[in-house]
Design a protein around this nucleic acid. Structure first.
Lengths: 156, 156
DNA sequence: GGTGCTAAGTTCATATTATCTACTCAGCTC
DNA sequence: GAGCTGAGTAGATAATATGAACTTAGCACC
């Protein structure tokens, strides 16, 4: 990976992928966000990931500030670790929702499952959409994109 | 990668990541979608990717239906290939937008750049948001997710 | 009609990561 | 104090990525 990409890229997408762009990381986030997994063994069983890789990925996600490690103790057992998403980790629900929408529509299966997002208090279902400043929804097919300095995007 | 994940996973996120979940694929899509790159050499120079890997990834993206290979010929040169996003490839703008938003806010840089999406005809800027069926926008922090069979999501 | 140029690759040696299996370790239960 | 369980480590092997050099096809220019 050249220096123009990676951690110090000016491209926000490249910086995101530096953290998220491997086969396991987003699946671990998915598991934490949607299934609510917090324990080593829960991740291991849900994903079938090798334990050394899981250790490595969890440590990495903690370093990157997406997870925190907490110590807890259930009655009658010794203290254990649990891995809980931080605010930065939970904010990946946008990315997770986008990936899930793409998989559901472009790689559909009759027996598929996807996360359904709802408002915490009211259970109102929500979905992901492009919207204008006036609040109108716009289909993804009608858009064009161009690269823009982030400072021009402030306040939007 | 165990069978419960991968191509045949019932989880739409896992199926998406089977296609998109490596360090280069989404960067190639970004390059095509935002910079409008179509040629081997454009991708190569923009990304600094090794040519054998680029060949492999482009072929894979064609197989997966995200790109098409077209032959074109400029006056005075021999015929060449260009790689153009399909409808399925362009529909990744949701994923790209989500990744870019995350990178811009959670891995901010003073000199950062991100794609700005606008409506094709009117240049009206749009952004990604969670919305209710009534069209109200909801902050990503107020949401909860749970796994749901896709058929329950039909019509939303 | 030979030389050089360029886009688009291929080949191959090396380095890095992932996978799979077996093992450790700490504290609890019995 | 023997065995169980969750949470890992360690190490051999397999798969991928990286980087550099090489190939190929066709045109341009002399």
């Amino acid at each position: 990976m050249p220096k123009s990409l990676g951690k110090d890229s000016t491209c926000s997408i490249a910086r995101s992928l530096e953290v998220l762009g491997d086969r396991w990381t987003l699946l671990i986030v998915r598991e934490a966000l949607i299934a609510g997994s917090t324990r080593f063994q829960e991740f291991r069983e849900a994903l079938g990931i090798a334990p050394n890789l899981l250790t490595q990925r969890l440590t990495f996600l903690i370093e990157e500030g997406l997870l925190t490690r907490r110590t807890y103790q259930e009655a009658g057992t010794r203290s254990r670790h649990e891995y809980v998403l931080t605010e930065a980790g939970r904010s990946l629900n946008l990315v997770i929702a986008a990936l899930s929408d793409w998989g559901r529509t472009r790689r559909a299966r009759p027996d598929g499952t996807s996360p359904a997002f709802t408002v915490e208090d009211s259970d109102t279902p929500v979905r992901l959409a492009f919207v204008t400043d006036d609040g109108d929804q716009v289909g993804a097919g009608q858009l064009v994109a161009r690269r823009t300095p982030d400072r021009e995007l402030v306040g939007r």
